[in-house]
């Protein structure tokens, strides 16, 4: 298909740019294990001091596994595309993306995919190896669940991308969105279960969270992978229900993004040089 060439062009561009910055990626090979080590000691102490095997629905091993998966999912879902978009606006480079025979959105998303590939290959895999050998992490054993959680991971990536794309579009109005990006990063991390699993949150928030996009970016795919959903339960314990919510959020965010995009492009074409 003809468009495949254009997609490949952007993905390759992302991959090559990532290679150019490989040292910045490689640092994560050290900082990720450090994160896990710190959590390991912290929670070992907490569990021992509390004297319980299970805290907030997780055993100590399960919680460690959760953090490892959270680091990996975080790497895959995290998007910096709003940074690139802000850079485009600040340096007056936006027009060039309209001179490429590809939509602005597609140009960004496929570039991002290429960019992340290196992260996944160089950083995520070694981290899993370390987690399995040193921290006793167990991989999922159910093939259907694994495949399902991988599908959910892809949907999570799209949700993460859309939220970041929306943030980036705001640059068309505010030009500099540094502060906004900082908040977005921190809140997405926190509300998606990146600091602690959502089971620690008050139950009223856990209920609310089912109807917000954030948990679908990290917590839900990890839960699925760890086999914590069932196919027979009712409500949000059912894997198909959460999958459905994920798909719903992908659609909703896409529509919102397209709408804001339209406004942003209108603003852009009215601006100066």
């Amino acid at each position: 298909m003809k468009t495949a060439l254009k997609i490949r062009s952007q993905m390759l561009a992302g991959w090559k740019v990532a290679l150019a910055y490989k040292f910045d990626f490689l640092v994560q090979l050290i900082t990720n294990p450090i994160s896990v080590i710190v959590y390991y000691f912290l929670w070992k102490a907490i569990y021992a001091y509390t004297g319980l095997d299970v805290i907030s629905g997780y055993t100590f091993q399960q919680l460690i596994d959760y953090f490892v998966f959270s680091l990996i999912v975080g790497m895959i879902v995290y998007s910096d595309i709003d940074n690139w978009m802000e850079h485009n606006v600040v340096h007056g480079n936006v027009i060039q993306f309209f001179l490429k025979p590809i939509s602005y959105l597609a140009e960004k998303i496929w570039f991002e995919v290429g960019l992340k590939f290196l992260d996944i290959v160089i950083v995520a895999l070694p981290l899993i190896m370390i987690a399995i050998t040193v921290f006793g992490t167990k991989l999922a054993t159910s093939l259907p669940m694994t495949l399902l959680s991988f599908l959910m991971l892809i949907l999570a990536v799209i949700i993460g991308f859309m939220m970041t794309y929306l943030t980036g579009l705001i640059a068309f109005w505010l030009i500099r969105i540094h502060g906004l990006r900082r908040m977005k990063r921190a809140f997405l991390l926190f509300l998606s279960g990146g600091i602690i699993p959502l089971t620690f949150f008050p139950s009223w928030y856990q209920q609310l969270s089912h109807f917000l996009p954030f948990e679908y970016m990290r917590f839900v795919p990890i839960n699925a992978y760890m086999g914590r959903y069932s196919i027979t339960a009712t409500g949000f314990d059912n894997v198909f229900i959460v999958l459905g919510m994920q798909i719903l959020w992908v659609v909703v965010l896409y529509l919102i993004a397209k709408f804001v995009e339209m406004q942003a492009f209108k603003k852009f074409s009215g601006a100066g040089a």
Binding site: K2, L5, K6, R8, S9, Q10, L12, A13, K16, V17, A20, Y21, H91, G92, N93, Q96, K100, P101, I102
Partner: peptide
């Protein structure tokens, strides 16, 4: 006055990438 090529890559990479982009 604007940056048009992929900044961190050799120009030849931009050329090859453009080959695909413009099919």
């Amino acid at each position: 006055q604007k940056q048009q090529l992929w900044w961190d890559l050799p120009a030849i990479d931009t050329f090859d990438l453009n080959r695909d982009m413009y099919e």
